[in-house]
Nucleic acid binder design. Sequence first.
DNA 1: GGGCAATACTG
DNA 2: CAGTAT
DNA 3: GCCC
Length: 535
Amino acid sequence: MAPKRKPARGAAAEERDPDGMFRGVSAFIVPQGVQGRRLEVWKQRLVQMGGRVVEKLDKGSAAAGVNHVLAMDAKALLRVLDAAWLHRFRGSVVSFEWLEECLKSGERLPERKFTINHEEEFKLKKAAGNGGSGASQPAKRSKISLRILGISREQVTRIGRSIQMQMRIKVQEASSGGPSIYAPADLNRNITKIFGRLIDIYRALGDDRRSFSYYKAIPVIEKLPFKIESAEQVKDLPTIGKSLKDHINEIVTTGKLSKLEHFENDEKSTLLQSVKPLPISTQFSFKVRTISLFGEVWGVGPATALKLYEKGHRTLDDLRKDESLTNAQRIGLKYFDDIRQRIPRHEVSEMEKFLQDVGKDILPGVIIVCGGSYRRGKASCGDMDIVITHPDGESHVGFLPKFVQRLKEINFLREDLIFSIHSVDGTDSGVDTYFGLCAYPGRELRHRIDLKVYPRNRYACGLLAWTGNDVLNRRLRLLADSKGYVLDDTGLYLATRGSGGKHAGRSDAIVNCHTEKDVFDTLGFPWLEPHERNL
DNA sequence: GGGCAATACTG
DNA sequence: CAGTAT
DNA sequence: GCCC
C-alpha cells in the first residue's frame, strides 16, 4: 500500500467561519455507534461553523480546552471514557442530537436539554453486577484489574505514578500558553490540497504507484519559500514531471483541476446533497468515497471494495449482511470504529509494560518491545507493533502460542486475525506472527496489535522493520539492493546474483547484525535514533 | 518500457 | 493464484 | 505518477 497520507495541516481551516454558531466549541467526539460518513459530515459542519474538533483526549486534557464531549449515548460514552474522568469534566456532555437540532434550526440551542446522563447509566451498570458489555470502568478499576491479572503492587503504583506524571506535564503544557507552532506559512496549500485528494483517490482505486508520486511531490512543494505563480518555477523540481507540472499550471491559472473535478463530479452523493452543499474542494464522488470507506475495513482492499460496491453495497451496514466476507473482514467491520481510534502514548506504554510482565512470567529473560510509531516517539499510535526475542537464541521457540494463550485467558487479546507459527519447525526463518485485537485492561475498546517473535540473530532486522517508518524501510531496502544485499524483516542477506535476474535472490548468507546500528553501518546509512525515523 | 521494498497469510 | 497486510 |  502506498504510504498513508499525513493529515494536512489545518485541513478545514480555510472554509471555517469564525463567527459561526459553534464559535468557542472544542469538542471531543466519541464515534462509537455512528456511521463514519455521517460523523465526517458532522465534524465538517462543526468546524465550518467556528468549532474545533479535538481528536485525542487523554487523562490530562481537561485543561487542554475541550469543553464539549459528543457521543451517541451513555453506553458509547462509557465505552471510551472513564466514569471518573467524566465526573471531573466541567464541560458539556451531550448527545449528537444537540448538533443535529442546532444544524436543523440554524441556531445554537442550549446544551442542557441534550445532556447525556452518564452517571445514571454508570450506576445502573454497577448495580447490575458490572458484567455489562461495552461499559468501561473508572480509572481505578483498570488498576485493580491489573492486580487481578497477577501484576504486582509495585508495578501498579508505578503505572499510577507515570499516569500522574503525564497529567502534570500535560497541564503544564496547557497552562504555558497555547501550542506554539513554528511551521512556516503554507504558501502552496492550493496545490498540495488537491494533490492530497488525488493521493486518497488513487489509493482507494488501488493505483498505489501513482498515488505515491503525488505523495512524494507534496513535501517538495511545501518546502518552497514562495507561492507558485507559474509552472515555470516548478519544472525542474524532482518528483515533478510533465504531468504534475501541467496540473500545477492549471491550478495556478484557473484555481482548480479538471481531472479532480472529473473524479468528484461523476456521481454526486445523495447524502451530501441532502445536507447543505459543501465547498467543491471537500466533495468526493460518491463512488470514490464509498470505495475508500470500504477499503478502511481491515482485510478489505481496493479490489474487494470495488466488488462490494458493484454488488450494490453502499454502507457498512450493507457489508454486514454480505455472506462473502472473510472472518478477518467481519472482525474488521465489527470493530471498525474501535480500530480507527488512536491510542494515547501513555496507554501504549502501560500495555507494553503489561506485556513484558506477562511475558517474563512465561519465559524469563524474554525481550518484548513495542515498535512502530510508539518507538518513534509519537504522541498517539494507530496500533501496537510488539517485537519479541530471547537473548539465548533458542528459547523463543514456542513462546508465542503460550503467550497468546495466556493473553487470551486474562482477556487482553480478544479477536484473532492472523496466527502463524514457524519457530518450531524452522520454516520461514523461524519467525512467529500474531495479528489481532486487544483491549486495555478494564475496557472493551479494541486496538489492533501485532506480535512478532524473532530468533535473536534476526531480531535487529525485525525491530528495524517494525519500527519503520515505511519510507525508511523502503530507502534502506533500496540501498541494500544497490549494494548487493537483500534486506527484509528477517535479516540482511548477500544477494544471489542470478545472471540476468532482476530480482536478486536471497542467499542464505545472512550478514551478522546484532543491533540495528549494525544494519545501518553495513549499508553505510547514517544512524538514526528511533525518533528520527519519521521520514 | 520496466521498476517503483520485500515478504507472509487467507481462501 | 489474487488480494491484503506489514 | 516519476525516473532512468
